[in-house]
Simulated scan of single mutants.
Amino acid sequence: MGNSTWLANRTGQIDFILLGLCSQSKHPMLLCAVIFVIFLMAVSGNSILILLIHSTAHLHTPMYFFISQLSLMDMMYISVTVPKMLMDQVMGMNKISAPECGMQMFLYLTLGGSEFFLLAAMAYDRYVAICHPLHYSILMNHKVLVLLVSCCWFLGSMDGFMLTPITMTFPFCRSWEIHHFFCEVPAVMKLSCSDTSLFETLMYICCVLMLLIPFTIISSSYYFILLTIHRMNSAEGRKKAFTTCSSHMTIVILFYGAPVYTYMLPSSYHTPGKDMVVSVFYTILTPLINPLIYSLRNKDVTGALSKMFNVESPRKL
Rank of each mutant, 00 (worst) to 15 (best):
C193W: 09
M103A: 13
L147N: 13
P287R: 07
N233I: 11
I205A: 07
M203F: 14
P291C: 12
L51G: 06
W153C: 12
S234P: 15
V188S: 03
T169W: 04
A57D: 14
D195S: 06
L292C: 15
L18I: 06
I138S: 09
A121V: 05
C173T: 04
L72R: 15
Y108W: 04
T286R: 07
I205Y: 03
T286E: 11
A235R: 07
C206F: 02
H135M: 06
F65T: 10
T283Q: 03
I38C: 02
I17A: 01
H58M: 13
G237P: 12
Y261E: 15
M308W: 10
L198M: 07
I14T: 01
Y77P: 02
M41R: 05
M29C: 08
S137V: 05
M1T: 13
L139P: 01
L49D: 02
A33V: 04
P83L: 10
C173H: 10
L31M: 01
F309W: 15
Y294T: 01
Q13P: 09
F65I: 12
F242T: 13
M91G: 14
F281P: 12
Y282C: 11
C32H: 01
L109V: 09
L211D: 09
F224R: 08
N94K: 15
M308H: 09
H135A: 02
L51C: 07
S47H: 11
M158Q: 13
I178W: 00
H180C: 00
V311A: 11
M105G: 11
W153V: 15
R174Q: 02
M75C: 14
S44P: 03
L227E: 11
F66Q: 06
F36N: 03
T81M: 00
C183H: 01
L40E: 03
C206K: 01
L59Q: 13
E100C: 15
S157V: 08
V280C: 04
V43Y: 04
V90Y: 11
L155S: 03
Y261D: 11
S44D: 00
G2C: 03
G112V: 05
L30E: 10
G45V: 03
I284P: 08
G92S: 11
M249G: 08
A42L: 03
Y64C: 06
V277D: 13
S68V: 09
G237S: 13
S79K: 09
T262V: 09
S25E: 04
Y294D: 05
L148R: 08
L109Y: 07
L31T: 04
H248Y: 05
A8Q: 04
I130M: 05
L139G: 00
V90H: 06
S234Q: 12
Q104L: 04
K26H: 01
S137H: 12
I38Y: 06
H58N: 13
